[in-house]
Design a binder for these strands. Sequence first.
DNA 1: GTCACTATCAACATTTCGTTGATAATAACC
DNA 2: GGTTATTATCAACGAAATGTTGATAGTGAC
Lengths: 299, 299
Amino acid sequence: MDRLDAMRAFVTVVNEGTFTRAADRLNMSPQLVSKYVSRLEEHLGVRLLNRTTRQIHLTEAGASYHQRAQQVLHDIEDLECQIGDLQTEARGMLRISAPVSFAIRHMAPLLSEFQQAHPGVGIDLQLNDRKVDLVEEGFDVALRIGHLKSSSLIAKRIAPIRMAVVAAPDYLKQNGTPQKLEDLQGHRYLRYSYIELDSSQPLHRWLQNNGQNDSNGMTSNNGDVLMEAAVAGAGIALQPTFISGPAIKAGKLQVILQEYEPEPMGLYAVYAHRQLLASKVRSFIDFIDGYFGDPPYWD
Amino acid sequence: MDRLDAMRAFVTVVNEGTFTRAADRLNMSPQLVSKYVSRLEEHLGVRLLNRTTRQIHLTEAGASYHQRAQQVLHDIEDLECQIGDLQTEARGMLRISAPVSFAIRHMAPLLSEFQQAHPGVGIDLQLNDRKVDLVEEGFDVALRIGHLKSSSLIAKRIAPIRMAVVAAPDYLKQNGTPQKLEDLQGHRYLRYSYIELDSSQPLHRWLQNNGQNDSNGMTSNNGDVLMEAAVAGAGIALQPTFISGPAIKAGKLQVILQEYEPEPMGLYAVYAHRQLLASKVRSFIDFIDGYFGDPPYWD
DNA sequence: GTCACTATCAACATTTCGTTGATAATAACC
DNA sequence: GGTTATTATCAACGAAATGTTGATAGTGAC
């Protein structure tokens, strides 16, 4: 027996004054209402109503139960309404994890616009380049760059991420401009710590074999530092264009080995489940999807 | 789906931290717990838990729901405990004192129904028209008719008791039908020994002055005898309608001087104290309250 | 890399649910 | 006073759910 339905039946009977009218109001048969109330009495072990065939009267227990049961039902109704509102109006705190360099450059205006469109949503943006555990760390959505392996998570591709080999024109003048992969030999390589190398890409394969343990290069877990270093002529960097784009346009960096440019990676929005998604999350996914354009504005 | 069970499942999962342990605690299979939580989420349209196969984490909606749901469950538990306590003790011997004529006519079906509703309660019904001492004589509850004076006892009004002046039609034909109080002079009055006369009622005042020491009437401490006597044409009686009702309906008695009918008295259930009332007594009070209807079925 | 654990899915027998038709009891009406 | 209409409840049946079992995939620990 659904005790809530039973409680609702009882309360309605008391409020309406008769089983039949209560049944009308609840859209069920009077027999069922009667059965519910009987079961409820049985369950409680108390007679709640003294009933003749024409009239009903509350017992003392019934009166006490009625009052509190009505309160409980009201509470539950409130509760469910509140949850529903939370759902339909897209509110609450949206916790986002995002790659540091990307977020610094491209998230601020997006989030600002998003919050204007959804005033009820607060944002907690955590910048982090490691792979956070969505569930463990309580993120609603994570932005990730790379080629995603399959997992139980849902990943939606938001934008392509082109990786370009760049160096400062001055550096190239001094050290020569590589035309083939082999020409990279001997150059100083500015390495990004978290880079995912894909051995099906020639450039990646070369880096894997030759670029890992060079001692004359530089390594950082921050793309901005590497980009600045490259601009300063510290060496050659494999950089996503969302970082290097402006410097390239400004002529501070020069793209080399363009024919070896790997297949673009992707910017992905990763979230837990496709169904029953909190609408703050859904709204954000919808919002960010297409926001950067195709090709993205930085390219 | 029993939403309460679903709520309980969800709350337990949150408290225990895992579906399996929650299932243990609830004595159900983990599959069922999972199903309950899923259904609850479906019902609410919100994901409450983000779960990997090894861990669970509350969503924002889940956290808010958890807190309030726990409150609601707690409320209901309290509610049922309170009602249950009332009931679990509803057993033992219930000693009732009641007016003779009333009990003979109207207590049997009530007590029968009451015992069906409360099989654990035995009944000792003592018929007595004098004012018994509840405590002294060990009664749980006494039914009394009259206008109760204040006392340390609790008196709950159960039903109105109308008093009607009646006589047999034949008697009235022979002796005339009184139209005013003065017309009663010379009539034979069938007097009830324990009657409480209230001098604010004109009829009572007249009886007090004129009806007490007449020698042509009749006195008894039993209303049935007086009613039968009235039906037999012995005189005029002031009778409660719960006695005379059927005879009036049957035409064996005729109501006279209706405009002088005193304010109705009451049938009261008198018991010792309101708090810490043995639930057999509470149940009986609840049961008899409203049982006779308003107006009562004999009127 | 293997193993143990966990949540979930799928399928099935059983239970329960909610309807329909019937019945007893009572108030209202002629 | 007798009839009618209303009311609560009972009984029984088909339909829908419940809760079990076995299977499956993902995940952390060793």
